[in-house]
Design a protein around this nucleic acid. Structure first.
Length: 473
DNA sequence: CTATGGCACGGATT
DNA sequence: AATCCGTGCCATAG
């Protein structure tokens, strides 16, 4: 309460509160739909496009100083800079940070895939292209693949092949990436190119996918290495990159259909709601935390509508009043949501900087209740804020926001290290002893569970000789 | 007999 | 009130 008033927001009404809560649970994607719905229904609402900071070219939220260029307004100088971005996550181009795992999110809530994609592309498509896109999306098979190659589609929609190809390319690069390709190989290739940031790993992955897909399926790394003239180690790393970061069946993550064993695709790439980066000009400076907007731009009450309201025709006056009221409530709720997210991230990033920068090992146990207390909100609010959101770390890893509250993550990380560094397979009891030596007290049974969630085989089935790493692709 | 996984219980968290 | 998590006990596989 105190905090909220400090932020200069209006006092809360119950309607306000209820709606804010309902917005808070939504992920960015879901929020996009919600906002769109409200915009369609309410003429008093307006979505204003994106602006860019003249000096740093980062997108600018509203008027005032650019958050990227200025120091944090108050508080600790070493704290992170948290700001709301008018950029939407579809602008986000993922990078990779070496051999770390990239993303392992639960699949997003099922939604209508064609609609989801069309909304992303709305701005890029015009006239006929929309129809073509809709046709293509509706003709995909269950896995998200194209049934007919581009020329046949072109004939079906009576459009030039070049146009169809352009639309296809757009769909393939939208989220989920690799959709509307013809086979897993193509899907992976598209995804790999999207991840290509010029460094060698995605490059190699692209080459391997393009030129040696068969061998990759058979895990014939030596063969690939020989044929492409690359070191075997590099090929193996590329294979593991592919396995960890790419998804051969783009649609699966979105339908979340239980047809596949859940283990088969925990690697679904997911668009983040929040992006944490380092300031490139100040590598050791504070972390930059960017909270994406559901669409590029921001929301406000349409000033023209407000102006027109005073001179509204008599018979519409009430109706327009309602629109205005509803619009300003909605805007307030969005602000409230943004505000809560911003404050939450500020706390999270401040307290878990080591976790973000140095990895899972450094995650300090924290509970939602404790954070709720610090934020002076109800714990259910924190739960909602944390739900359904994903955050991209500087290294490029994308993790669910919920990961910050994983009680056993750091211990599991140590277990992973022990196992990967073991000379001979250690039994659970021996792992318990090793953990004890490092000052971590857990029961044997618990180690077994950690192994299970990390997908580590029991000692008997672990062989020091062969790497169990590259499972299925 | 040893190492593991299943089941279930109690306490903490949501 | 519902859920999650660590753990102990016990059956079973090797």
């Amino acid at each position: 309460m105190l905090q909220i008033q400090e932020q200069g927001l209006r006092p809360l009404t119950t309607a306000h509160l209820a709606q804010t809560m309902s917005l808070l649970v939504l992920s960015n994607q879901e929020l996009r739909h919600r906002v769109q719905e409200e915009l369609d229904r309410n003429p008093a609402l307006e979505w204003v496009g994106e602006r860019v900071c003249p000096s740093c070219h980062r997108p600018l939220h509203r008027a005032g100083p650019c958050p990227s260029c200025t120091a944090p307004p108050s508080g600790r100088a070493d704290g992170p800079i948290v700001f709301l971005s008018p950029r939407s996550a579809s602008h986000f181009t993922p990078r990779h940070g070496g051999d770390e795992d990239y993303a392992d999110l639960e699949p997003a809530a099922p939604e209508d895939l064609p609609v989801h994609v069309l909304q992303q592309l709305a701005a890029d498509l015009q006239g006929d292209e929309r129809t073509i896109a809709a046709y293509i999306l509706s003709s995909l098979d269950d896995e998200g693949f194209l049934q007919d190659p581009a020329p046949i589609v072109a004939r079906a929609v009576h459009a030039p092949l070049s146009v169809v190809e352009r639309v296809l390319a757009l769909i393939q690069q939208a989220d989920p990436p690799g959709l509307a390709t013809e086979c897993p190989r193509q899907a992976l290739l598209v995804q790999a190119r999207l991840l290509d940031d010029g460094s060698s790993l995605p490059r190699t992955a692209c080459r391997v996918l393009a030129e040696a897909f068969e061998e990759l399926g058979r895990r014939d790394y030596e063969g690939i290495a020989a044929r492409l003239g690359l070191p075997t180690g590099q090929v193996k790393r590329a294979a593991s990159f592919v396995q960890k970061n790419l998804n051969p069946y783009p649609a699966r993550g979105y339908w979340g259909s239980g047809r596949q064993a859940p283990r088969a695709d925990p690697n679904v790439y997911h668009t983040p709601d929040i992006l944490i980066t380092r300031n490139p000009t100040l590598p050791q400076g504070p972390l930059m935390v960017e909270i994406f907007s559901p669409m590029p731009g921001w929301l406000r009450v349409n000033p023209l509508f407000r102006q027109a309201q005073s001179s509204a025709p008599e018979e519409h006056s009430d109706e327009w009043d309602q629109h205005l009221e509803r619009a300003s409530l909605f805007v307030k709720c969005m602000q409230q949501r943004n505000n809560t997210m911003r404050r939450l991230l500020e706390i999270l990033v401040t307290q878990q900087q080591d976790f973000i920068v140095h990895g899972d090992r450094f995650l300090q146990p924290m509970t939602r209740a404790k954070i709720a207390h610090e934020l002076a909100v109800h714990e259910s609010t924190v739960s909602r804020a944390v739900a359904h959101k994903a955050v991209a770390f500087p290294g490029g890893r994308i993790v669910p926001l919920m990961r910050f509250f994983d009680r056993s993550l750091s211990v599991r990380d140590v277990v992973k290290e022990i196992v990967s560094g073991e000379k001979r397979p250690l039994t659970d009891d021996q792992i318990v002893a090793e953990l004890g030596r490092r000052g971590i007290a857990v029961a044997r049974r618990t180690v077994a569970k950690y192994r299970a969630v990390e997908g580590i085989l029991p000692a008997r089935l672990r062989h020091p000789k062969q790497e169990a790493a590259a499972a299925r692709i």
